[in-house]
Design a binder for these strands. Structure first.
Lengths: 250, 250
DNA sequence: TCGTCGAAAGTGTGATCACAGCAGTGCGGC
DNA sequence: GCCGCACTGCTGTGATCACACTTTCGACGA
């Protein structure tokens, strides 16, 4: 995986994209400390590219910074998750509304292909693949809006929520398959009905938010019983058991 | 101005805040190149803090990066400005709606004081003071929403638009004083009417956008005559005449 | 056995240096 | 007089080092 198409980008760029991808896919547990030197060692570079990549992620709120300056994978509270969802419910339907008139046949075809992938992944019970296809479907739509700053802000909300799925990804596949409105959205999109697509998207965001608010343990939940340990038991001190490296791909 | 209250923050933090403030106040002309070494020299530090501060601003889209990596003060096209305004029209009314129920007497008093400052500055014909008070009024309101990520995104849109006011700030005071809806917003806020405040704010954003779209020269405007030179004449090659330094406060 | 102190490792910050790429500029030749 | 080329300076990148600070772990003593 290290050797991509080529190496045209700077080391910082590579570090940034590796960390970003790991973050958005929930590869890091919330609370994980990402120290400059560890990341650098995992990447095989000097601390410098790791430092700039980490600060860049911190600037877009993808990671938090401890007072000491150490980067830490964000741990969402219920309030933060709700705020993020409220923002999404404004921004993503806006992007959809802007995208619909600009969707040509190629985009529709691409969306339909992604949708097929998502359905089969859901039936196969592969949570990572479902999440990835879900993401790809929406972002393929948003990209069609040709609104770079809006897209960046939406990516920011996804980046921030990514680590949450480290603990929650198994939950996703437990949702009944019908709840994803993507098929309906695609149908309305083919008709060019921008408002309907936006409304469906908004409904999906709100239902997903309600689902997770009900089922997910959050950082500020006190443990009702010892059962929901994965988050709360770990939170007081060490986030990860004893995984030494911050390596994105071990 | 260099010696602020104290020096508790790191050099990067200081550099970041100085550059950010200069950017949002329109102190830099769009297209100005901000090279790492020049900024560092202006700040009296090594290139390192300037580098990280610049990259941080680039990460939040406050400056653009040339392919070479040099930071450049963004030059808005009409499309980018319209996109930014559309985002603002979603995000800022949302923040206002969230803020209204949380506005206690102290916030109302603060808003009322800022409003008085703004009116007197407008009568005095001081564009910088008007813009500053305008900003302070809105951000005092948004801060009351207690939504840190939303606030960050709103700041990002202001940061991005800031350099535009380098050329446009004289335009602001030419608007008839009645068009600012802040007084009406404050009145509705006192009544606790969140939706009305949000509607007024949205109307203000849309009217200000229309005003600037009509009156402002943008980066992608071809010069109809030689008159609107300050932007278009300069755009093909060198942005600033020959101002050597990137010094925030000359 | 527990508490406390000290040393050692780890942390981010920032300066300095080496390097490769690029633009501007001045010179020389045509 | 005009064109072309090499050179010089400036650019960002990244490695390495020094520094101050914090955390942590181990050993010693009560």
């Amino acid at each position: 995986m290290q050797a991509r198409s080529s190496e045209p980008a700077s080391l910082e760029e590579q570090a940034y994209h590796q960390l970003r991808q790991a973050l958005v896919e929930g590869a890091f547990p919330p609370g994980q400390k990402l120290s400059i030197r560890r990341v650098a060692a995992a990447l095989g570079t000097s601390p410098m590219p790791a430092r700039t990549a980490l600060r860049r992620l911190a600037a877009e709120q993808a990671v938090d910074l401890l007072p000491s300056g150490t980067a830490i994978v964000p741990r969402l509270t219920r309030a933060a998750f709700t705020e993020l969802s409220t923002i999404r419910a404004q921004l993503e339907p806006l992007a959809a509304r802007m995208a619909v008139p600009r969707c040509d046949r190629a985009v529709v075809k691409q969306l339909s292909a992604i949708l097929a992938t998502e359905l089969s992944a859901r039936q196969a019970g592969d949570p990572e693949a479902v999440l990835r296809a879900d993401r790809e479907f929406l972002f393929a739509l948003y990209r069609a809006a040709a609104a770079p700053m809006l897209l960046g802000m939406i990516e920011s909300t996804w980046l921030r929520r990514g680590p949450m799925f480290h603990d929650a990804r198994w939950l996703i596949v437990t949702r009944p398959p019908g709840v994803t409105h993507h098929a309906a959205m695609l149908k309305q999109l083919r008709r060019g009905a921008a408002e309907e697509v936006a409304a469906l998207l908004r409904a999906e965001i709100e239902s997903a938010t309600a689902f997770l608010l009900e089922r997910m343990p959050f950082a500020d939940d006190i443990d009702r019983d010892g059962q929901l340990s994965s988050l709360t038991l770990v939170s007081p001190r060490r986030p990860a058991p004893s995984r030494g490296a911050a390596k994105p791909r071990p």
